[in-house]
Write a protein that binds this DNA or RNA. Sequence first.
DNA 1: ACAATAGTGTCTCTAAGACAGTATACT
DNA 2: AGTATACTGTCTTAGAGACACTATTGT
Lengths: 304, 304
Amino acid sequence: MDFADVSASERPYLPPAVAVSTVAFALNPPSGALVVEEGVRHDAAGETSATLWIPLVRRTRAPYLGRWALPGGPTRWDETLADTALRSIRAAAQCTPGYLEQLYAFGGVERSADAQRLVTIAYWAMLGEDDLSTAVPGGAEGGSTGASTAEQAGGRRWDDPRVDPPRADPPRAEIGAAIDESGRADANVAWCSADALPDLAFDHSAITDYALARLRSKTEYAAVAHRFLGPVFTIGQLRAVHEAVLGYAVDPANFRRQILARGALIDTGERETGSPHRPARLYRFSNEAAPEFPDARPQPRRPA
Amino acid sequence: MDFADVSASERPYLPPAVAVSTVAFALNPPSGALVVEEGVRHDAAGETSATLWIPLVRRTRAPYLGRWALPGGPTRWDETLADTALRSIRAAAQCTPGYLEQLYAFGGVERSADAQRLVTIAYWAMLGEDDLSTAVPGGAEGGSTGASTAEQAGGRRWDDPRVDPPRADPPRAEIGAAIDESGRADANVAWCSADALPDLAFDHSAITDYALARLRSKTEYAAVAHRFLGPVFTIGQLRAVHEAVLGYAVDPANFRRQILARGALIDTGERETGSPHRPARLYRFSNEAAPEFPDARPQPRRPA
DNA sequence: ACAATAGTGTCTCTAAGACAGTATACT
DNA sequence: AGTATACTGTCTTAGAGACACTATTGT
């Protein structure tokens, strides 16, 4: 079932195609990755500035040929929407995100100009430092470009209400942004600071803005920031993540109290070592009581 | 382009179809409407209990033949997703909602069993008392079943980032829940209390739960409740809406202060008349400063 | 007069923010 | 000793909730 032989003038009358686009956030680009900043391209060096990074994919066909776009592509017949999002992230960033959430469905009739009507379901994701191969958090060492698409989705829960195991071999569709599955550091994949994105293809700039707003919003009222970190972390590290995401300084004392008052952090009893100051307690995150729906908000105080 | 002649065994391999389902909330069912409560069916009478009501459509084909389902159906080639939601609401409730917002995209692979893969974008909507024909707010008068699909979408903004004017006559697709466009009180349309819904077709019960959670959530942190009312209302009426939606009593004094502190209510200078007590001020709602994205939340106080 | 709701005043309590002060590691 | 961060204490302030009290209509 391929629409390639349908004449261009009939394409707008076809049933809409379904594609997924993903905004994947990381605290740092993986070491050795191609970095693009507002059109100027250079290799990753220095710059441990506290911004967020997003992997982009270069368009290899019209429309928007050569422009940067969000990773994504059409859903396969045997994939959930979340699975498609995961696959596109793995293809672009060579890792599996620690968090994935649906963002919005874009279905305007004019989104892809003359091409077939396209409905895009946007997702956003968080890539932990652990997930990104073996990147050194603060450094610029041109390390190994993490091999073997690590299948590390152990026991994680995606937001899609029902998730099915994949079935047999599917046929490939040909619509929308292509997903590169070759692995390996790809010249068509670049990492870009969320603060200085170039103009993206389609409406992907708007999607990215929306995703950034959602990430900031959830960082303020929900407990998601820890997913940028490993399984064990200090409150200071967590605070640094909040500051990077929110873009402003947070009082250490008040942050500590508020984050502990939520009751989601579990003291491991161990301490950080090797720091040039008083060692901090190490905490784990308690995954109990996940919200029923991905964008549910905490219950406000309600009068009796 | 019709998939009807594709054999059933090939259907799961087709590209997914795109449909829309809508959860439309109203404070009261329209007078004269068919009311269904947990399978027991009877005409609307008395019962001005403070619950929310939702229009449902009976399935007229397999799967789930005969079960109640959310209004909806496939998107036409020339419609935005929001337009499809509007059309399905107009067909089921014979009115245009005062608010419409995208809820979630459901795309699990097994949602429609053996049928073609179906991606459903769910919307939720608020139907104002004004919108529902000429229903009497508190009463059970079997009044006129409001005629003529009133086109009253004057100057309202929908959430879809880009909205286009519809084009020419589209062909009809044949997948998913049928939309009845005959108008008139339909035996296949029933109103049901959100508290006592029967088991719905597909995953529509879960969608409804999600929509209800979102409505309650937005009622608490955003200013949406006024859309259940007319253009002018008293704070007491607005409080009654909050109580109906949230399901618990709200202190009148504190509610007044909080709602006024938001700065979105404009005193018209006029007063309510005919009430057996001190007349209340009448307010309008200020539509300025609509959020950039439909589910944006108010900015919390941020330290300098 | 009475009932009923509109609207105001004010007390309490919680939580956020600001910031001073103490604790404990490494150099 | 000096520095840097961890952690604790506490003052101030804003806002939520509870609730008493006054205002103004119709019956």
